[in-house]
Design a binder for these strands. Structure first.
Lengths: 336, 336
DNA sequence: ATGAAAGCGCTAACAT
DNA sequence: ATGTTAGCGCTTTCAT
């Protein structure tokens, strides 16, 4: 038989109400009583049913998180695992629970229903999660924080967000290159959809060149995908021109891989003839030859902060800063 | 105000019981009535509360999944994201919900309590998850399937498992090398803890050599960690001996990276002077130079099958095969 | 075929 | 300070 508050109450010779009060630290209960009840709770190893609690209180302690179905190139590495373990940590700290859904039709429908019936306390979305869910979340007034940047004005008002300093990351990459003596610096961007920080990274590049009085030539800016092969082709073309760059900054480590490959094909050595910098500090970055200089984002922390902010929103606490931008860090290795 | 069965009932001019019957496809309800109630349900966009349902039925539709806190080297790539998206898919197919916990103290404690109060319908564990939880799961009789291999006899009786054909993967790697003309083939193993398939992979190597009448020299077997640097050192030592191997098979792609690096340092070209094969088909495998021949495991499918099996167990269905071994596939690229 | 009513485990208003 | 009681939304006997 299941141990309920009733079981505890009877054994302790008190009423269920008292057990409940002890559990919820209600001040109106004598120390003596508290001890007595606690003792029985321990003996019976009683754990209150969060289901009953949810039903009674008409609340939920469940945080929903959606992972994109197509874990594309950009997320190829441990990105989502890391985000999630950050979320998990924060979530258990605040006595919430994490429930995961995919953005597949089945997954979206599931979370949609749960939101509509108020069985989700709050949600964490990735900035690429498509509209339908955002709309449901908005309509329902469900607390929500998005991981990444929010473009939409209205969304920014209601949602929280946790992103990283994409601009600064690339800015410091370029700065590092300049200080190391490189002058002709190219940039290969990923998708130009503003999401995933693509736009900000490009702006970081442009700003750094400008601040250091360097010209920003359009031939030295390539726009592709967050993909190695495409980056390789772009790099190959750039490196074969008369005015070839001395260094190239990539929006992504995979793309840096492509650039290195292009360089070696043409017979250029890295970092000797060409400096290369990536972005993400993917797992393999330190293990390739040459070890890749890149920008690290605090992925776990993103998840942690997002969940923490969400917990605050759920509890109705004041949020000091609802759009967090976490610092990125340049990891200098051997590729430039 | 929340729409409940009561709301629907009143609007349709029937009792709550009837609404419930319609929802649960109870045969004792006239078609006419069914239509009438369904219409109202649609109009009101009514969704039954799974909380109330759980309380009444004393069941749960929640599947728990634990991710290791220390996402070690082995899991560096998208392993857990992929497993999880597989689980998610299956889980929503069976109208279950996925809840994620970390193996941190906070996380374990949380899931432990939920299991003990029967609020978890079943759990999916990784084969490295430490004892405490397994014990709780066992004691509580909670359906459980583990991702990976189960060593413990008793555990094998009660738990289900989904693993991959580690043995065959390495066997076919070695076979492929032999057929390509390589004779002196070395193997660098990861951790020898049987978990994570380490042991089976090594045995696949040994069996292949034996089956093709090749000698298995102990100098050609290295045991390290699932780590690039250690593999590099081992490879360097092997390659500097008189009797240096013509090819080396690694327990892991990262380790293959280390071997390639060792080779290039010594001036050996891959695949010219040395063939290299990895394991996992990590995201970067196809993008390095040379593109790595490796063994792919169907990671998403592992998650999918695990969740499917668990769903069967939860529903009390007969399980045909409670220890699934999914096939691995040799992906031939340019490194041998 | 449908309705009335009890009860899952919990909390909070009300009573003492 | 403690007990009594109603009720959260649902399903399921038991009547009819």
């Amino acid at each position: 038989m299941r141990v309920t508050a009733e079981t505890v109450a009877r054994r302790a010779g008190v009423s269920r109400a008292t057990v409940s009060r002890v559990l919820n630290n209600n001040p109106n209960v004598s120390d003596q009583m508290k001890r007595r009840v606690m003792k029985v709770i321990d003996e019976l190893n009683y754990r209150p049913s969060s289901v009953a609690r949810s039903l009674r209180l008409q609340t939920s302690d469940i945080v929903g998180f959606m992972i994109p179905v197509s874990l594309e190139q950009t997320f190829a590495d441990s990105f989502f695992s890391d985000i999630m373990s950050g979320i998990c940590d924060a979530v258990s700290l605040f006595s919430l629970r994490l429930q995961v859904f995919t953005s597949s039709p089945a997954g979206s429908q599931a979370i949609e229903q749960l939101i509509q019936s108020n069985q989700i306390a709050g949600v964490i979305l990735h900035d690429r999660i498509e509209d339908p869910i955002r709309k449901v979340v908005l309509e329902n007034g469900t607390p929500c924080v998005v991981v990444g940047t929010i473009e939409d004005k209205e969304d920014r008002e209601t949602f929280g967000s946790v992103s990283v300093d994409n601009f600064g990351g690339v800015y410091r990459s370029v700065e590092h290159l300049i200080r190391s003596g490189y002058r002709k610096i190219a940039y290969i961007a990923g998708s130009m959809s503003s999401l995933g920080g693509g736009r900000d990274r490009l702006r970081g590049y442009q700003a750094a060149l400008q601040d250091y009085g360097l010209e920003c030539k359009s031939e030295h800016v390539g726009v592709g995908e967050f993909d190695r092969e495409i980056a390789r082709q772009i790099a190959e073309r750039m490196l074969e021109t008369d005015d070839r760059p001395e260094a190239v900054v990539c929006a992504n480590d995979l793309m840096a891989l492509g650039v290195i490959s292009a360089a070696s094909k043409i017979g250029l050595s890295v970092p000797g003839d060409l400096g290369v910098i990536g972005f993400n500090d993917s797992a393999f970055a330190k293990d390739i030859d040459p070890p890749l200089t890149t920008v690290r984002q605090p992925v776990q922390e993103i998840g942690y902060e997002a969940a923490k902010m969400l917990a605050m929103m759920i509890r109705g606490n004041e949020i000091r800063e609802r759009h967090l931008v976490l610092p990125t860090q340049l990891i200098v290795r051997k590729s430039c």
